[in-house]
Design a protein around this nucleic acid. Structure first.
Lengths: 147, 147
DNA sequence: ATGAAATGCTGGACGATCTGGACAGAAAGC
DNA sequence: GCTTTCTGTCCAGATCGTCCAGCATTTCAT
């Protein structure tokens, strides 16, 4: 599916998605049109979901983050899921097995905002909230083999 | 701190970090040298943490993900944290308030690999694992105002 | 107020980079 | 063994990024 060169390109792009085709090309030992073509195909196949930028939430005014576990009350699952999706402060949400139906990340400006946001789902689900104190590992991709 | 143009640039870059300076420039109504300078400063100030690429984990051979809550045994906190950081299959880890000391995301190839990886910390911490069934919201930044 | 300095922008020139097309070689299918 | 397909290279025209000089606006000390 992916060959070594693809993995190597991905590895470089994870660290710098603005790397020029020329630079990518010399790193992997191809010409730039070839690299261009590979990138096009990686994107087309969905291997590359997006070229994006990682932003410090604090710079946008969100100094606090919380992990919220959410157990919708009987019959409320879909309403709760929709509500979560509509609240832009949710920065991530996974639907999981087990008692907790959803595990989500919430960006907030303050404790009172956290309280206010959780109130919006309080009548439709039970929640358990944990404030994030530190981030030992920030989002990174799974191992890419020998890259 | 950030003005409207900065937010607009970030908004565009979140969706396409390979956008050319020229394109960014016309979207925000500046010249390309100005945009170049703004990007340089956003990066320098740490607002932009990284230009990166979002990869489909499945394409790298990791079709399963789990959320693992980790409660190190007394005195084992640092060892556990170090262990987590060293295991590349952990794709994210937050240190939180409450009983669960860490909440982490684990990429795995199979259930048996999940079991094998959790065994590596089993003698140093209690864990609760939830398999991810769906991702209603994939990683996204907090609201950027009127962008 | 006023002048100096700093900031942030523009436009143009030049060099670097990208794109698209013509073509070549290896692998796969008939 | 020949054709088709896939992946790559090379080249030239088009596009893009960077550097620099100059200008407007703001800030601040006088």
């Amino acid at each position: 599916m992916l060959d070594d060169l693809d993995r190597k390109l991905l590895d470089i792009l994870v660290k710098d998605s603005r790397a020029s085709l020329k630079e990518l090309a010399q790193q992997v030992g191809l010409s730039s049109p070839s690299v261009s073509e590979r990138l096009r195909r990686l994107e087309e196949r969905g291997v590359i979901r997006a070229f994006t930028v990682e932003i410090d939430p604090e710079a946008l005014g969100y100094p606090l983050q919380a992990i919220v576990r959410i157990r919708p009350l009987p019959g409320k699952l879909h309403i709760v899921q929709q509500l979560i999706e509509e609240i832009p402060e949710f920065g991530e949400c996974d639907k999981v097995t087990g008692d907790d139906c959803f595990v989500a990340r919430l960006y907030v400006r303050s404790m009172s905002e956290l309280d206010k946001l959780l109130d919006r789902i309080a009548d439709k689900a039970e929640t358990s909230t944990a404030i994030i104190k530190a981030q030992p590992i920030r989002r990174r991709p799974p191992p890419m083999g020998n890259a």
